[in-house]
Amino acid sequence: MSVPAASPANDPHNTMRASDADRDRVADALREAYAEGRLDVEEHNERIDRAYNAKTLGELAPLLSDLPQRHHISAAPAPTTGGPIGTQPSMPPEYAPGSKVTAVFAEQKRGGRWLVPSQTTAAAVFGSVTIDLREAVLTQREVVIIANAVFGSIQIKVPHGVVVRDEGTAIFGSRTGSDRNAAGDVPVTADSPVVVIRGVALFGEVSVKYPKVSKIGKFLGR
């Protein structure tokens, strides 16, 4: 496993101190690259660690140098308008905050390897929606899914080690499976990811599906 070499130290822009916003932008770009399959788990983790320990822009730039141009940050000086250094990597529209999954007299699924924004809205009206988080990458430790099922159903599939918290309501409908965590064989800690489910089940159903627990997990009472 390798990380591209650091940028030349004699470039004055590379010696500029990095801000928290610069480190966050690089971390977001690395998460997107991981979700696209451009980085494996070890490379992603190593680069994330180096990003948050970087002191200068010169230390950040190499972490993105072997990725497509849209992931890059600029080492140019900050504009006179007072805006942030560089440009924030663009994120595909379907992954942007406020993403929506809607099924009206239809069936919709969101799954595979995808970036989960801070908030996702799912609506099933006389239809069904499946949101699969088992291979997804959460953009932050706690994400919110607003699930509105009106004469329809919404199923949320979660991986091991995720804490599910249901804050929604049911009116002549049902909400099931959110009264426990999805620990499985992975212990839940204070840093475990949290999925908060809100919204309403009106003559509909919102359910959470957990992964199967192995024999070891059952033996340990999980």
Rank of each mutant, 00 (worst) to 15 (best):
V26Y: 04
N45V: 12
R38Y: 00
P89C: 02
F151G: 08
V164I: 02
D28A: 07
N53Q: 11
Q88V: 13
G127P: 00
V26H: 02
L57Y: 05
K157M: 12
R198Y: 04
V143A: 11
V186S: 08
A33R: 03
G112A: 01
A201F: 00
P79D: 03
Y52L: 02
E107Y: 06
D40V: 08
E36K: 14
R222W: 10
K218T: 14
A183D: 15
T56R: 01
A149L: 07
E135K: 15
R110W: 00
V195F: 06
G173F: 12
R47C: 10
V164D: 02
S7P: 08
H13Y: 10
S128C: 08
V116K: 10
R198D: 04
G199K: 01
H71T: 06
R134T: 15
G161F: 06
R175S: 12
Q140P: 06
R23G: 02
G82F: 00
R47Q: 13
T102N: 05
T87K: 11
N10C: 08
N45E: 13
N10S: 10
S118D: 15
G111I: 04
Q119R: 14
K215P: 08
D66R: 14
T56S: 02
F105I: 04
R38L: 02
P93K: 05
L138K: 08
G217N: 01
P159I: 12
A76C: 12
R110D: 00
D20M: 04
S90Y: 03
S19C: 02
S99D: 04
L63H: 09
P84S: 13
P117I: 07
G112Y: 01
L64K: 10
R113S: 14
E59G: 07
R23F: 06
S99P: 00
D22V: 07
S174Q: 11
T87P: 04
P193L: 07
Y210E: 10
I216M: 15
V143P: 09
R110S: 00
V195R: 03
A78G: 11
T176Q: 12
Q69F: 09
E94W: 01
K215R: 12
N45F: 06
P89W: 03
N45Y: 07
R31K: 15
Q155N: 10
D11V: 00
M1D: 05
L133W: 01
F126I: 11
S192Y: 05
V150T: 08
A35D: 00
K55A: 13
D40S: 08
S178M: 15
L115F: 05
A170P: 03
A75L: 09
L133K: 03
A183H: 13
E94L: 03
K109W: 08
P117V: 05
Q108D: 10
G184R: 15
G83N: 14
I131K: 11
T15Q: 14
Y95R: 05
A122F: 06
S7N: 05
I197N: 04
E46D: 11
A29H: 12
T15I: 13
A149F: 09
A27L: 07
P84H: 09
V186F: 07
S214Q: 07
Q108I: 03
I146A: 11
K209C: 05
